[in-house]
Design a binder for these strands. Structure first.
Lengths: 226, 226
DNA sequence: CGGCGCCTTGAACCAAGTCAAGCTCTGTGG
DNA sequence: CCACAGAGCTTGACTTGGTTCAAGGCGCCG
């Protein structure tokens, strides 16, 4: 059994003092960001815990976050990764359905749910943007569910393509370790490793180091993704 | 390889002439229903196809619907079942990410997306209800993703509990055949059958016939669900 | 340069898939 | 009312993809 206890002592999250870059997008998106407070979360520190009241939403400015659940017997299941630009914390009503942790040091915009609701009630563009973002999250979750009922190779291919879609160019920088990928794909760390190696041997990808994947044959990957 | 071709010749969907029961709920929910048109869909008939433009949303009045995707090699993956009261068709933006079919003869409320958007722009309660329903769908999709990375027993237990939560009492009437359950849980029809039999042998459930499950030991199921 | 976290590789094992009967409803026609 | 046919479900025997257990390698940081 692998342990997930944080390797960092839980340090106090610091309010970022520096200005953060304005992400491009429609006016509504900027309005949403305007009511957010930027905060820095250190690697492996908790953003929120499962079944805590969900009083905030979060937008990733930079870094990466994992949403996960620990089962009764200790297995961990990662439901989603959130990367720069993503809005998260949308799951469920009164309390969070998952816990969330920073995968790497991450700057997040913390948005009071109540404030955002009030803003949405006044501005229908904001309401629409909010709905649209939630719909996109839903589409991603369904996509993930489809991925999880495929073979190991297909899951890896799907994961690489998902990550590639969020990177510019052929080079993918993975913020998360193998164990996170395994828990996201419902596989073991060994199978993730083996499958990546096998994809490299087929010349579909290249693995210059363990935090980087270079696409060599995207078409082959898409075929695997069925 | 199993075939999914419809056993019914595709008959024209008929606009239901009879009145439909008003589902209870907040005023916003009733407003949403008011702009819907009731239609009857026969068993195994298509509601919409994947990659068709998503111009409508649907609310299930009665019956059941499956949202699915056929992969390149013919495997079918069911992303969700929608039962009485559910709003669906929320996935994605311009086009549907999944196809949808009636599992049994079903009465659906067909709602023009544009009309609903216009209504939401005018009435912030409607906008909020829409967001809230989409959030709930998202929570369910994430839950399903977690379920899919568990063992066969755990998936079955999760499925039975999911269905039980939507039924009054201990008796669950399954509208869908085993093949649908298999494709929803990412298992084979044989494994679904064997796992149900094994749950029955453990006296966790009872199977009076293949469309009915009676809960005998919900606690044991919840433990399996981890 | 040594230690530790993380990743890879190998070998044995097992849960779920595959293939192949056989059974049980349900509806239909004689 | 019974016989039959077909779809859908169950069960058994065998195979396999992925896990488990175990060892070894790599790279980063003190």
């Amino acid at each position: 059994m692998l342990s997930y206890s944080s390797t960092n002592r839980p340090s106090l999250q610091q309010i970022a003092s520096s200005a953060f870059p304005q992400t491009p997008g429609p006016a509504a998106s900027r309005l949403i960001e305007a009511i957010g407070v930027p905060m820095l979360f250190r690697r492996n520190n908790e953003v929120y815990g499962q079944s805590e009241p969900s009083e905030h939403l979060y937008r990733v400015v930079n870094g990466a976050v994992r949403a996960y659940r620990i089962l009764a017997d200790g297995r961990r299941k990662i439901g989603a990764f959130y990367l720069a630009g993503d809005l998260f914390g949308l799951d469920a009503g009164k309390t969070h359905g998952f816990s969330a942790e920073a995968v790497t040091d991450s700057r997040l915009l913390v948005i009071k749910r109540q404030s955002l609701l009030a803003l949405a009630a006044r501005d229908s563009d904001v309401a629409r943007e909010l709905w649209s973002l939630t719909e996109r999250e839903l589409a991603r979750a369904l996509e993930h569910a489809v991925l999880l009922s495929k073979t190991a190779q297909e899951r890896m291919a799907g994961f690489v393509l998902e990550m590639a879609a969020r990177s510019a160019g052929e080079t993918i920088d993975l913020p998360m370790p193998r164990l996170d990928i395994a828990d996201y794909l419902g596989l073991t760390i060994e199978t993730v490793s083996r499958t990546l190696t096998s994809l490299e041997q087929q010349a579909t990808i290249e693995l210059p180091n363990c935090h980087r994947i270079v696409l060599r044959n995207g078409i082959a990957l898409k075929e695997l993704n069925a």
